[in-house]
């Protein structure tokens, strides 16, 4: 399938395109290409650099975090379903990928390269700005969840982990009578 063959109905389903008018979606679609991967193929490799925004169209992908060189020591962080977006962090900020993405079964993914996006910006295409807005909202939401998680670690679980030192501090300083 070519990018031009994607129906308007499908494009309307993609969350990251939610602020776009139908013709703007088509414009972005035309600037992108469809990539196909077979089961187990790596879409994004952790630690490598690339600047693409990906929208999963068909099939599922896994987000994987490896904690060492050893392939067996890996953690599946999430399983992505159709119309999910990924790669946006590296897309907007060039840095090595913090996690990898691998196809789970045969998949089709819409890929927008950063160069293509930059061209749209240069031409003053509103679609590029609206896409960025949606992507920033998604990332802000993720950050908020991260904040909550950190707060929970610090206040609740974190304290439990340091129960013994808290006990020691309490009895040897405040209550050493």
């Amino acid at each position: 399938m070519k990018a031009a063959e994607i129906s308007n109905d499908v494009l309307a389903e993609i969350p990251v395109f939610r602020y776009l008018e139908p013709d703007e979606r088509r414009q972005l679609c035309d600037a992108s290409s469809i990539q196909q991967f077979t089961s187990g193929e790596v879409v994004i490799r952790q630690g490598k650099r690339s600047q693409n925004l990906w929208v999963l169209l068909r099939g599922e992908c896994q987000v994987i975090r490896q904690n060492s060189e050893d392939d067996s020591d890996e953690l599946v962080l999430a399983t992505l379903s159709p119309y999910s977006t990924f790669g946006e962090m590296s897309f907007f900020h060039e840095a090595p990928h913090s996690a990898g993405v691998r196809a789970k079964g045969n998949v089709e993914i819409l890929r927008l390269k950063r160069e293509s996006y930059d061209e749209l910006i240069e031409n003053g295409a509103t679609s590029a700005y609206k896409l960025a807005l949606a992507a920033v909202e998604t990332m802000a939401d993720r950050l908020r969840k991260m904040d909550e998680w950190v707060a929970m670690l610090v206040s609740g679980n974190g304290r439990q982990k340091h129960e013994w030192s808290h006990f020691r501090t309490s009895l040897f300083s405040e209550w050493n009578l």
Binding site: W164, N176, L177
Partner: peptide, 18 residues
């Protein structure tokens, strides 16, 4: 009770029994 529990707690910590 604070005095008693405190003394037992400190001995427990110093003994390193956990």
């Amino acid at each position: 009770y604070i005095l008693g529990i405190g003394r037992v707690g400190r001995a427990t910590i110093l003994g390193g029994s956990v």
